[in-house]
Amino acid sequence: MLNQPRLEEIMRFLSQQKRVKAADLATQLVVSEETIRRDFKYLEELGKLRRVHGGAILPRLNEEQPLQVRNRIRTQAKAKIAECASGLVQEGMALFLDTGTTTLALAHQLTSFSQLRVVTNSLDIAQLLTQQSDNHVLVTPGDVRRNDNALIGPHTLEFARQFHYDIAFMGIGAVDLKLGLMDYEESEAMLRRTLVVHCVRSVVLADDGKFGHRTFINTLPFDAIATLVTNRPLSADYMDRLEQAHVDIVHP
């Protein structure tokens, strides 16, 4: 079992030194390196640190972690969200899926469909749906962002505006009680602002780790979206705030 005092010690060392080595922590805490690596994995899944070769570092503030790192974080939560979100989809719909690990998890669920029209700015989502389903897939143009294979920029926005979607599924960087939906980069925020006015139903996918955090950009107020899908019941404060904004809340 994971030892909470040891986890707190690891985070204390990390907050002081910004980077720690598994071997050094094993010596200081009198445990094996395998135990420390297991602790690192657990803390990374909570978004507390980022594993690197031989050790761990603190995530940078106001900077989203690379896709390969985010894919290891809150995987069960994202799977629950994807399953709930797929229940909103019917054959024949036109969908937009923006880039992100939760929308990628949703794309896995959508491989069971065969008659969807999916537009995406994610090369990973496009490849998955093309190779594993018979759905029709359109990929936006744009500049390739290397850390997550996303297509971004003015050409992406121009292409997205050409269509009207039954549902636009969007990830988000953070959900703040006062400021609403927030992002790390302006390119993502601009795309999401575009999508909400070109769809019948705008759906934000956000795991419970996104709530109570702030990032750099105010993307959308709560009342700009129709539905929020998450992996567990929300606190009373968030429930009240979203209900005031007339947002449908979906969770397992």
Rank of each mutant, 00 (worst) to 15 (best):
M1T: 12
N3S: 15
Q4P: 14
P5S: 08
R6I: 11
E8M: 06
Q16Y: 02
R19M: 13
K21M: 14
D24E: 15
L25N: 08
T27H: 10
S32V: 04
R38H: 12
F40M: 06
L43N: 05
L43W: 05
L43S: 03
L49F: 01
A56R: 03
N62T: 01
P66H: 07
A79M: 01
I81W: 03
E83A: 13
S86G: 07
L88V: 06
Q90N: 14
Q90C: 12
G92Y: 10
A94G: 03
L95Y: 01
L97H: 03
D98F: 08
Q109H: 10
T111V: 11
F113P: 03
Q115L: 14
L116P: 01
R117F: 13
V118Y: 02
S122R: 05
L123V: 08
L129N: 09
Q132Y: 12
D134V: 06
T140N: 00
G142C: 01
N149R: 12
P154M: 03
F159I: 01
D166W: 03
F169P: 06
F169I: 08
V175W: 04
V175T: 11
G180A: 09
M182G: 04
Y184C: 04
E188V: 07
M190F: 09
M190N: 13
R192Q: 15
R192L: 02
L195A: 08
V196P: 04
V197D: 15
R201G: 03
A206Q: 07
D207Y: 01
G212I: 00
T215A: 00
F216L: 14
I217E: 00
I217D: 00
N218C: 07
P221M: 01
F222N: 00
F222A: 00
D223M: 01
D223G: 00
V229K: 06
V229R: 09
N231T: 01
R232A: 15
A236D: 13
R241V: 12
A245L: 09
H246C: 12
V250T: 11
V250K: 13
V250P: 09
H251N: 14
P252S: 07
